[in-house]
Design a protein around this nucleic acid. Structure first.
Length: 283
DNA sequence: ATCCGCACCTGAGGGC
DNA sequence: TGCCCTCAGGTGCGGA
């Protein structure tokens, strides 16, 4: 699943097909993903114009002409594929329905958006646009890592008393919203911080040093179109490229890429998730 | 208030 | 070929 850069890549891929376009027909092929879909979801979407596609953390938010906002989360394995368009702007003809195609939007402009999610950890919900700030999935989120309120003093104050490992602290969406397992590993590597270090034991300089690095890692990944692991595709079906830029994620046993370091990338398990790091240069 | 492990699912890959 | 095991990008929840 997609972390912030992959979700942003999907949002950008969907925008030309969906923004300003009418949902001619919404098809909902099962009652739920992680949670039940909202009441009458297909009817509430059909006929609506998508005014704007936004992203908050790993959520895509579609503001509709009906006064409602559609919330979409891709979970671990969710994809949004755009096919078939009259202008030749998008890539493929409509494909035959695939296993796990759970929701399909046929747009009046000829584009089709297919939400496919084998593991069904994803989610969709509808809320009033005016009241979206109160949505339970959104209220708990910390600041956007690429936004203005995520800065050095914020992160230091937020983490300086935490006894939890820095890895866990950065994965906690209440502290900063949008990082996942890959980009936390990569950011800690760039900062030479061992993932098991307690946040409270890190100096102020080391914590604040994470802020620009987190921004850089995410910005670089967005520029590369995200990373393509097992399940992720851009909305046009193409692969992202950032996985070729991973310094540590998935590189257990491979040599550290830092100039002058002869370490070997190791893997440990922290709260059930793999952490990749270089024991030689991350302390 | 924090923190950790569990749960929710399917599919891919490796070993035998 | 098949079976069994492990692992996978997330995150809400209950209990410690």
């Amino acid at each position: 699943m997609p972390e912030l850069p992959e979700v942003e890549t999907v949002r950008r891929g969907l925008a030309p097909a969906m923004e300003g376009a009418v949902i001619a027909k919404a098809s909902v092929n099962r009652p739920d993903l992680r949670w039940p879909f909202p009441e009458r979801m297909a009817e509430r979407l059909t006929g609506a114009t998508v005014l704007q596609l936004r992203r908050r953390s790993k959520y895509i938010l579609a503001d509709l002409s009906t006064g409602e906002t559609l919330l979409i989360h891709l979970g671990m394995s969710g994809r949004m594929l755009v096919t078939g368009d009259p202008l030749g702007q998008f890539v493929h003809d409509h494909q035959p329905a695939q296993k796990h195609d759970h929701v399909v939007f046929d747009m009046e402009n000829g584009a089709r958006i297919t939400f496919n999610d084998p593991r069904r950890f994803g989610a969709m919900d509808l809320m009033e646009t005016a009241g979206q700030a109160e949505h339970p999935l959104l209220t708990v989120l910390g600041p956007e890592p690429l936004g203005n309120t995520f800065d050095e003093s914020y992160l230091y104050e937020r983490l300086k008393d935490r006894k939890t490992p820095i890895k866990s602290a950065l994965l906690d969406q209440k502290n900063v919203a949008g990082l996942g397992n890959i980009y936390v590993c990569e950011a800690l590597y760039r900062c030479r911080i061992h993932p098991a270090r307690k946040a409270a034991n890190l100096s102020k300089a080391r914590i604040t040093g994470l802020v620009p690095v987190i921004r850089d890692v995410l910005t670089d990944a967005i520029a590369a179109g995200g990373s393509s692991l097992k399940d992720f595709r851009q909305a046009d079906g193409e692969l992202g490229y950032f996985q070729h830029s991973f310094d540590v994620y998935g590189r257990e046993g491979d040599p550290c890429r830092r100039a002058g370091c002869d370490g070997t990338i190791a893997r440990i398990v922290q709260s059930g998730r793999s952490s990749f790091y270089c024991p030689q240069c991350q302390r």
